[in-house]
Amino acid sequence: MRRLTWFNTTSLTLGFAFLYLPMVILIIYSFNESRLVTVWGGFSTKWYGELMKNEAFLDAAVVTLKVAFASSIAATVLGTMAAYVLVRGGRFFGRTLFSGMIYAPLVMPEVITGLSLLLLFISIGLDRGIITIVLAHTTFSMCYVSVVVSSRLVSFDRSVEEAALDLGCTPFDAFRSVTLPIIAPAVISGWLLALTLSLDDLVISSFVAGPSSTTLPIKIFSSVRLGVSPEINALSTILIGLVTIGTISASLASKRAVKKRQQEEQMAEQAA
């Protein structure tokens, strides 16, 4: 029944043109000589040079990277713990509240999350800065990590874990040498997700950032509000390039891992 009718071909072509054309145009115009963004003035890479000289953007990029690394690592640890508790934790006091708090941030409007965290930081007297952004990002990213990891924990065969326990492993050893390697791909993709969410976040950061801790999205947003500029086009092109390389290499790596596992499984079957 799989066939490419004219309808399917057209909808795929138009659909992907819609998804990709705006970004392609953005990239092309980042190499525009003219300062007027909509008029083509010849090929040039001068806006990339201007960008490198712009210290405000570079400072913001450093803040963003610091926040993203700190918050994504914290979110991965906390999110994996939360997933383990949800799937393997059994009953405990307040379990419903706990799972509610894991799922609620996923559907919460960002303005509300940002507002409530800011009001918390003000009422406990914590100065706004990198620390508050890291705390905020960790909180919403850990929920995404825990959803990704718990879907992997649910689907894997528990008897392997039980076998390790029967053979004399302590629960911690069993987790480290059996469970963790099995859920590792989910933990890594959870970490990547947390990293991207943090690099990307504008609304929540705008609420909880202080004057000395401007992140890259906040900086881009404030200059974009004034209109389109070729420097922002250049910056966007660099970011799109990094994301594309990252996504493609991650998917190639996971494809290779799947292939390797299939080969190993085949060899194991043949040996048996």
Binding site: L12, F16, L19, Y20, P22, M23, I25, L26, Y29, V37, T38, V39, T196, L199, D200, L202, P217, I220, F221, V224, G227, V228, I232, N233, S236, L239, I240, V243, T244, G246, T247, I248, S251
Partner: peptide, 30 residues
Amino acid sequence: TLMMLVILPFWTSFLIRVYAWMGILSQEGL
């Protein structure tokens, strides 16, 4: 491949995807 083409924008900055339209939709835009 098609699946990856749909997911790729997810990983690209939301702000940049909105910004891309500003140059297209303006009065003297494309």
